[in-house]
Design a protein around this nucleic acid. Structure first.
Lengths: 195, 195
DNA sequence: CAACGTCGCTGACATACGTCAAAAAATAAG
DNA sequence: CTTATTTTTTGACGTATGTCAGCGACGTTG
């Protein structure tokens, strides 16, 4: 079970066995059920998560009560729920929910600070992690500015290759920024075009 | 002139005089004219920039030739032009242009790697920088999903408080994802509402 | 198996925003 | 200062996407 996270860490850094041990001693394993809420708007985000198995979604609820999916976190993804809340201690404006039964590691802010002090190579790891997140998000913003719903849908399938079959498509619609009804019609149109 | 960058560094880290000196020895000052291009789509992004004075914009050009502003970088902002290109050495898909006569510091990828090795506190600095960028971008994505053009415009004014009077409003329209024509009408409507 | 809620599909109608063209206003250049 | 260029505004009309309502197909729970 620790294989997944160790492989994930090795993607960007080469920690010594001691450093890995420190990391593992500061992270806590956790299992949640489908539909379980890990972070609720208004609470403070106290943990950073790493998904070993399953899938999470981060979403907001707007003034008129509609939900908007900010990101998915399937296996091998890191997820903060609400990073600003996590860092600042302010109330979260995002929600975080499990879309499947999910196994994850969580690490608290205090432990993360300890980690950075005791194993500074993790500064590097998270620097690279957020660097990549920056690229990912800028890409998505670009898609929002320049592409139609179809283009954004393609970007989704590239970002999350095997997710579509696992989750309700209303979440995909929300992620690309259209209503479920329109998404349904759009897919029908796309199919018609192809054949 | 180095005051600006030193103050910027001190926002997140507390570098020793030696570390600051290392940083300054690896960064190069540069001045560019209005409309000068710092990075062109298809080239490789070789520098990371810090704006001392003036303003840059990062933008893409879509298949139909339309430009889309991804971000502005007025004074005291860092800007990568195309971070993916900078990191990977792949061709850039973004363009970077000065909107005003601009003074900046630039640091190459090689020098940045040297900096990380010689003064590891900068790993921390850039980790925090990208962390903040993550929050900023997620906010913007949320606005794109949940708000109308008016809401996105408000977010722009919060993100860049004194920029509106300095740049052409067609760039603001592009940043919030509407046409200049619609933006013009929208502002007229907003004014009418208020009074 | 029955009953219920959730989800996806369809169609009629509504609206935010885009397109195109032209004039007016502001800015830059000679 | 004057002309040329760029930017902004206005208006008519088009389109992508939203809203609402209904209906059928599942999947869950008792």
């Amino acid at each position: 079970m620790n294989d997944t996270i160790i492989k994930n860490l090795r993607r960007h850094i080469d920690p010594t066995p001691e450093e890995t041990a420190i990391f593992l001693s500061l992270a806590v394993a956790k299992t949640v059920k489908r539909k379980e809420i890990l972070l609720k708007e208004g609470d403070v985000a106290r943990q950073q998560f790493f998904v070993i198995n399953g899938c999470l979604r981060t979403y907001t609820i707007d003034a008129s009560g509609k939900e908007h999916v900010l990101m998915f976190a399937p296996e091998d993804w890191w997820c903060s729920g609400d990073l600003y809340s996590f860092l600042s201690g302010q109330k979260s404006i995002n929600n975080l929910e499990a879309l499947e039964p999910t196994t994850l590691l969580q690490i608290s802010k205090d432990n993360l600070d300890i980690l950075f002090r005791q194993a500074p190579t993790f500064e590097r790891f998270f620097r690279i992690l957020f660097q990549n997140a920056f690229v990912f998000h800028q890409n998505r913003i670009n898609a929002n500015l320049s592409q139609s719903a179809e283009g954004r849908y393609e970007l989704f399938t590239k970002a999350y290759p095997d997710l579509e079959s696992r989750i309700s498509q209303k979440y995909i619609a929300s992620y690309i920024g259209v209503t479920p009804e329109f998404f349904s019609q759009m897919k029908a149109n796309m199919f018609r075009k192809k054949s």
